[in-house]
């Protein structure tokens, strides 16, 4: 490299923002060129000044003052329920419009297929569940367990992060 280093190359070198081979070439040039070494010295000095920390002039009561102001300020709640409501509204509008303007035959067909699917896949499990025990009280207990689990999951997913643990606690108490 016969030419002097460009300022862009010098800045990239000092920022360590170049690849290994380019870095080597620059270092080789620097070992031979005093003018570029001086340029690097100026830049290094500038970097050192820019990296010198600013003396903080915040009052010692800064944290307390902020905390005192917070007492009267509520945290903004994210308005997610509006989006759920709008989504639900949009869903019913689309569904209603589609049903109004379309032929219902395909829906009847889908419904028939759905029934076949249920008969094929769900009923064997229901029968298995019923055969597990002849005692009806055990069935009710199992059913209540499933219902509480579903409520707990919905609570956890949509209402609060604590919901799941609360529901599990209720389950344990039962």
């Amino acid at each position: 490299m016969n030419k002097h280093l460009s300022e862009q190359h010098i800045q990239e070198y000092l920022d360590n923002n170049i690849n290994h081979s380019k870095k080597q070439t620059i270092e080789e040039h620097l070992s031979e060129c005093s003018s570029c070494r001086d340029e690097i010295k100026h830049y290094k000095k500038l970097y050192a000044i820019l990296e010198t920390d600013i003396e903080q002039r915040l009052s010692t009561e800064f944290n307390v003052n902020v905390l005192n102001r917070l007492k009267n300020i509520p945290i903004k709640k994210p308005k997610t329920w509006i989006y759920y409501l709008l989504g639900l509204f949009g869903f019913f509008v689309i569904l209603g419009t589609s049903l109004y303007f379309s032929d219902l035959k395909p829906f009847v067909y889908v419904s028939e297929q759905f029934k076949i699917l249920i008969n094929a896949y769900i009923f064997p499990y229901v029968e298995l569940f019923q055969n597990l025990s002849s005692s009806k009280s055990l069935n009710y207990l199992f059913l209540s367990f499933i219902i509480i689990f579903i409520i707990g999951t919905i609570d956890r997913l949509f209402f609060s992060s604590e919901g799941f643990s609360k529901s599990n606690k209720i389950l344990l108490i039962i």
């Binding site: 002039r57 902020v66 300020i73 945290i75 903004k76």
Partner: peptide
């Protein structure tokens, strides 16, 4: 303006607190 700096720093943290849920 040195006099404004502390107030602005306070305002920044108030905004951070208010919008924390977002």
């Amino acid at each position: 303006n040195d006099a404004d700096r502390e107030d602005i720093c306070q305002d920044v943290f108030i905004k951070v607190y208010q919008n924390l849920s977002t």
